[in-house]
Design a binder for these strands. Sequence first.
DNA 1: CGTTTTACTGACTGTGTACTCAGTGAAAAG
DNA 2: CTTTTCACTGAGTACACAGTCAGTAAAACG
Lengths: 200, 200
Amino acid sequence: MNKRQLQKQNTRLNLLQVARQQFVVQGFLNTTTSQIAAAAKVAHGTLFLHFPNKNMLILEILDTELNEINAQIRKVIAGAGDLEQMLVQYLEMLQEDEDIFSVIARELPFYPAELRRMILFRESIIRSYFHKMIEQGITAGRYRRLDPAAAVTFLFGTINYYLSLKTIYVKEGSVLKKFQHSIEQCFMALLICPKGEENE
Amino acid sequence: MNKRQLQKQNTRLNLLQVARQQFVVQGFLNTTTSQIAAAAKVAHGTLFLHFPNKNMLILEILDTELNEINAQIRKVIAGAGDLEQMLVQYLEMLQEDEDIFSVIARELPFYPAELRRMILFRESIIRSYFHKMIEQGITAGRYRRLDPAAAVTFLFGTINYYLSLKTIYVKEGSVLKKFQHSIEQCFMALLICPKGEENE
DNA sequence: CGTTTTACTGACTGTGTACTCAGTGAAAAG
DNA sequence: CTTTTCACTGAGTACACAGTCAGTAAAACG
């Protein structure tokens, strides 16, 4: 790779990195392309040599991010036989990049349709892991006979709620850490089949 | 009241009504002051004779709306001895103005701090009704020993989630109607103390 | 060394929006 | 009837932002 190609690649990677930092702090919608360019110390126009428009830049950053978490969760699933363990690990994974997930939770309804579909598709894969786990628990008689989809939405809805109102619930640090215990407690209480009431 | 005062009042009320309609369809953030003025068939500038700025217009509309629902729920509380009944009635009330609550659920994180605080304060009053009901149920031994605040957030988080993603869950009609049964089922399953495990 | 290619520059364009203010005409006041 | 008041008008202002493009300088090429 010659000097020019190297330079180009560096600029591109730098833009992605700087943009991610800005997005995490201000959100995607409130970060301007000029800000990103200034922070990356390149001209405004340079950004559009590397990305056709702002949306494609967002899409690329989120694609990378969501790919990583999906790969991680697949590993976790493989290793976790237990739903509770899976939930704990999922919450801990979200905490690691909580800033960006908080931004997505808030801004999702305002993203262009394509981007929104991509994010929801990725989320639906993760939901399906929980769904299956719950179904298994029900057929094994450990969990109550609830609609698994409803239970999953209860969980994801609550997580989403905490993430989107993060700034109200905590001044700094992680919301999910603060409420991790109560989320786990509630979700498992919802599922666990009380003694003397096992299915079958 | 003379002809002028009457005219002024009419214009003002008309603006409020037209603005509400537009907001419900497009959201507060995506509705422009020009659109509202055009729909109300007055000049753009007229809007600013009646409201100092767009935010105050939004605030006034939401204030009216939230006052109404708070008054209603207070009545419901007075009449409902039962938490489940209270939940059913609350969900039905939300359904009546689901469009505007859906907009609020989506846009809340982007409102100016003052407006956000007002809305969350109003919500917290409603939450407190549920909180008390749950506490009573726990001390009476009917409900499990859960953190009432966590249970309430589970409920409100889920409702909020359905509302904010309304357009994805239903093409037309009410999301809350569609999922009312599963919300009720899940929430009550979470709380109800199974037989043979009553507190005290 | 001269020519071509190309990553980058930044002033500029177009668009969308909240809000203003000098002007108008009809109602109210005297 | 004359003067004053005032609800309303709409062109205009100020600003913010995404995206463009002719120009530049340095690297690659022959």
